[in-house]
Every structure is written in structure tokens, then in C-alpha cells.
Design a protein around this nucleic acid. Sequence first.
DNA 1: TCCAGTTATGTAAAGACGCGACATAAAGCT
DNA 2: AGCTTTATGTCGCGTCTTTACATAACTGGA
Lengths: 374, 374
Amino acid sequence: MTTHDTALLRRLNTRATLHALRRGGPQTLTRLARAAGLSRQTAEVALADLTARGLAREVAPAEGGTGRPARRFAFRAEAGHVVGLDVGPRRILAMLADLNGDVIGEHRLDTDEHLPAAERLARAERAATACVEAAGLARGDVWAATAGTSGVVDRSGRVSVSTLIPGWTGLDLAGQVGRWFGCPGFAANDANLAAVAEHWRGSARHVDDVVYVLTGYRSGHGLLLDGRLRTGRTGSAGELGKVPLTGSEDASAVLAGTGRDADELFEAARAGDAQALALVDRLARGLARGASVLVVAVDPELVVVGGGLARGGEVLLGRMRAHLADMCLNPPEVAPSTFGEESIAYGAVRMALDHVDQELMDPYEGTASQPRTR
Amino acid sequence: MTTHDTALLRRLNTRATLHALRRGGPQTLTRLARAAGLSRQTAEVALADLTARGLAREVAPAEGGTGRPARRFAFRAEAGHVVGLDVGPRRILAMLADLNGDVIGEHRLDTDEHLPAAERLARAERAATACVEAAGLARGDVWAATAGTSGVVDRSGRVSVSTLIPGWTGLDLAGQVGRWFGCPGFAANDANLAAVAEHWRGSARHVDDVVYVLTGYRSGHGLLLDGRLRTGRTGSAGELGKVPLTGSEDASAVLAGTGRDADELFEAARAGDAQALALVDRLARGLARGASVLVVAVDPELVVVGGGLARGGEVLLGRMRAHLADMCLNPPEVAPSTFGEESIAYGAVRMALDHVDQELMDPYEGTASQPRTR
DNA sequence: TCCAGTTATGTAAAGACGCGACATAAAGCT
DNA sequence: AGCTTTATGTCGCGTCTTTACATAACTGGA
């Protein structure tokens, strides 16, 4: 804890003003002051500070009210940017977002799953920088960047185990990503980031305890408790590798037995094909078995299902609900993902923003306009 | 967020002073000021406030230093008290503690497991009030009280399911306990409270992600992540009722097959009896299976084993470690409980103190000397 | 016994901050 | 043009914290 002089008060109030500004959109000074619980003068001083730091700007007054027109201020979301990446086995997706989290650029890239690590990294960097340059920005305009990928990612952002991506194990992904832009870099597991995205603005936005189930070729579990990501000591929370579950089958094994791919299977099941329905039920049971471990352990409010198999929609989800009800004392809700394939990169954006917000909002921070680099 | 005037600064500094005072024990003004990051005068003002509220007092100066003897101040742990209860099927344990969490009175009571709910409650109240009166205190001197019990306890402190205690389901335990003393009352599951106790001052004190395994007649799991209790949406986190685990057996079923009780079994195993060792291994496997669900879900740093079977010591724990290593990618440490049978009541003390501390430390609070009652 | 050294206490002044109050400015409406 | 309404500009006050300096109290050695 630092010194508690009146300067702290100033920072606290500036923070409250910034918070109110971001929350309430463009608004007048008096409204802002009331929202922040401050006097007009104090809000004015805070706003001057924020303007000097590039975080606020004055906009045109509102038309047609009675009385003297009030000056209005808005948050400058374009003051900084973050990059979110999904570096998967078969696909790379880069997103560029402003401080509001609005995505202002994307770059997608298909890759071969056998691509060597070094080349995969180079492509990921190209995808990310392509976004940035397309938006007319320089590398230095990126304040934080996060990458999601398949495998276990530890607290420091290093890939400790990856079975799906060749040469990936041992990679300091967070460090790499940070170096590309000379900013703080972070990395996390794909299912975890998808969970973050759904909690941020997706299916889980009204709920703080969520289990996310990533299905399909890339599979895994993400866990959010009290709205925060829980990855465990080594980052392997939700990695069910060796749990002795009865009757759980791998989805690809189930599918391999049939001649069809997942979409065909779901289509047939929707049409009422009994054999297809039975197969969907087996898939659902396997997913439910895995999810049940997390559900029983943490008793969440909601299970969000995303990834390839989520295209099965209600046919699959309905069966999952039924199986979960058999396995859990308090079965949670089950909902499909909102962001689908984009959820991982979008969650990466959110994680990068988390860091920026923390620096922006920290009252014990200096007044430097850019977050410190580590 | 409330108004951020200079009074907040005062409260903030008073809080910092109180924190330093509690943390550093009886100490001089200048040391206190430095520890709190404040000037001597500010600390002095804060201390005057704390003294007026009964939370601090002046003690005799230290002997024999050079220079003018410094006035010394100490935290008044006796300014308030909390009660922690363990209301089990066969036993009731009440603890009275001061604001430091030092236990200054206990009252133990054996009960029949078939005792009706109303009578069990009456006995629990008697045990709790006996503690309070034996310490020469009145009911109003208790600032918060918590009860732990067997069964699922929801967020509001109501017992939603209890299979072990007759008539317990539906009981508003938190409300009852609060009414006894006219103070805020709380209730939680026994395994959860045991986890809290071990994290507070026991085997898990250096670790923030812990799974606690309560074994024996009362069994269950407690979960702490980031040092905080996680009970889930309905309070049933860690209740493994219906998970389809292979090869998991109930401990009592294993023991029933033999003619011996647990202690005899462990004794024989320690002496090298092969049959006993095999039985201990089966017990250990069952416990490990259950724990593995939580371990795999949240990847904790430590598993603490408490309750009746924990008396098996290393004979049992060693086998549990071996089985967990087979079931988890990253097996955590496994340690025995520190507080044994007292951990539940002691964890209840801690939970009550959490509430008191929050009221005491909340800078947005008024300056009333006693926490508000709800 | 006295005095220097050391450490704590008491007091005053200054700087920073937030707020209330009042006067002033700029728009719409009659 | 004048009134009403709402926002802005400015001033002074009270609170809080800190720095600076003078004073008090105790120890140990001469």
C-alpha cells in the first residue's frame, strides 16, 4: 500500500469519472458528476486530466434541449488498441479491437495441422500485424495482446503441453506475442478464452459461474467462477485426461464408425433418423460425462457448449441436458455458444483488455498515458 | 460507490493503521506509522479514533531502549467476539473466539444421531451460550456467529439437503444462529469450513487453491480457490452424489466387510499385515477417485485429508498419492489435516471473523463501534 | 550529578483537494 | 424584449496530510 495523501483521492475520483464515462456513453458534465458521485468541479478536473491523457474528448452538444447547451464528453476508445489471437491447429484468427472491445479488424488464415511451430508463429504474427496495418496503426499503438491456443498454458503464458500442435510444447507464447508489439503479452488455453468471451458478451453474460465445453476437433473445458477465469496451479484445470469415467467416448471415435461427418449426422437426426439420433445421443453422453466432472466439482449456473459439435443445436443440447440431469444433483442450464468459432480470439481480446483496464483504473498508478511494459 | 471526499481518506488511513496494528502486534507509534505508510501524526489521529471505538488501547512502553520511551499501542482483540459451531450428527462443538481468532472457550457435546432437529438445535444453542457465559460475556458481545453442518447449505445459509441429520433439510440454520445472539449469522457445509480452517492456520496456510477431503462417517469435499470458499450456485460444489466413477467404493462398505474399525485396520496395516494393507489401499483408492474429480476440475496445489480416516496417516496418504498420480495429469501435494476434529468449528470461527473484519475494514462504512446487524 | 546523545512528542505552517454558494452565460419560449 | 432554464466560471471554506522545528523524556558516560 502506497502513501495515502490527497493525490490518491484525486486518482480515485478520476477513476470514478472514467468509469462513469465509459459506462454511460457520451454525456454532459453534470450527469457525469452525478453518476460518479462527485461534484461538478471535481468531475471537471478529472475530465481535464483524462482529456490530457487522450482518454476523453469533447463532442458536440446535444441538440434541442432547454437551457444553456451543456458541453458533452465521450470516452476515446480509439486511444488504444489490443490484439486477440486464436492460434489453432488448422486456423489462425487475429482480431484488432479498440478500448471498448469493438472489433475493428480481423484476419483469418487457414493452416495445415502439421505446420512446424516456427512457421505457425510467423503466420500468426503476419495475421496480427496485417490487422494492425489495415487499420492504419503502428505496432506501438497496440497496448496489449493475447493469444489462445490448444494445449495446457501455464500462468506465465507458456505452453506446457500441446498434443494437437507439433513443436508447440514448451513455447513461451505470451512472450512471443508481447515481443511482436512491444507490449504486455498473454496467452491462455482456447476453451478458457472462449468461456471468457461468452461471459463477456455472449450466452453467459448474466452469469458468473460458468463451464464452457469446447467440442469437435479441438476439445476442452473452460471454467469461470465469480466471473474470473480459473486455470489452476499449472493451467490444467478442466483437462480431464486420465479421469476414470464410465461410458465416456471420444467424439471422433463415435463419428469414425459412421461414414458421415458431424453436420450430416445432425441433419439426419433432425429429420428423425433413428440411427442418427442414437449416435447423437452417444455424442451427447460423452460430452455430458466430461462436463459433469466440472459441474459436480464447482456447481456452476450454466454450461455453454461451443466448437464444432455445437452446430448440432438443440438436437445435441437436449440430449446433453438429459444426461447431465442423470449425473448431477443440481443440473445447470445448458446453452449454445454465441460467438461460435470467433469466441477464442474474442476472449483473447477481452483478456488483453483486462490488463489495459487494470492499468487504466489502478488508483495507485502514475499518470503516464500508456501502460507500463513489463 | 459513495462520495469521495476527504473523509474517505481518513477512513482509508484509519483502516491502514488498524491493519498495521493487527499485523504487527503491540508497537510504537512511529513503527506503526511506517508500517501503514503514513506520517506519525496521521497514524496518531487514526489511533485516537480506533481507541475511541474500543479497537485499540495504550500499553506500557517497552523497557530499556535508548531515548525517550515511546508510547505503545495494541489491538484490542477482546473488543468483540465470534462464535463458531460444528453441529454434526453425533457431536456438537461450540467455540468462542476473540477478534484475533484466538479460541477462549469451547463446549463439546455428544448427541445421538437420531436426535430430532428441534432438540439438536436447542442443544447447539446451549453449547454456544455456555461458552459465552463461561467467558463472562453477554449474548450481545457476540458480533457474528457461524455454524457448520453436514449436508448442502445454500448461499443464504439454509440447509437444502441433509441425509445424515433427521429433519435438517429446509432448516434456516444461519437465521437460527443469528437469532441466538442478535447478530449476523452464517452457515456452511462442514467440509467447506474445514477447508477454510486449514487454509487459515493449518496445513494449507501457504497455499490458495485447496481441495479438502472430509473422510469417515461424515464425508464430503471442500473447495478453496484464490483463498476463497467456492460453494457454487446452490452450495453443492464438491457433492459427488451421482458421478459415474469407476471403481470407487464407499469407505463404510469397505470397512463393514471386515470385523475391525478403522483404527484397528490402520494399526494392522502399519504392522505390515498384507490383508490390512490391501484394505487400506481400497479405502485410499475410493478417496482418491472422489478427490480426483475436484483435482482434475480445478487443478489445486494441495489436497488436505481430514476426518476420521485421516488418522490413517502416512499409510493411507501414501496410497492416496499413488492413486491420484494415476488419475491426474498434474497430481497435487497431499497433506493431513492440522486441526482434525476441531477444524469445522474453527473454520466457522474464521467465517464469522471474515464478516466482522469486512465491517471493520470497510472504508465506506460509518464509524459505529459495532457492526450493523442485518 | 550533570551533560550529550537519542528518540518520541507537540505545535505550527503550508499545500492539495473537494465542495457549496453565488454570479454569469447561453439557449428556448412567450 | 424579457423570462425561464440549464450550464459554466469563480471564490472561499473546511478537511486532510505532510514537512519542519521546537520541546520532552530517558540512557549512559564523564
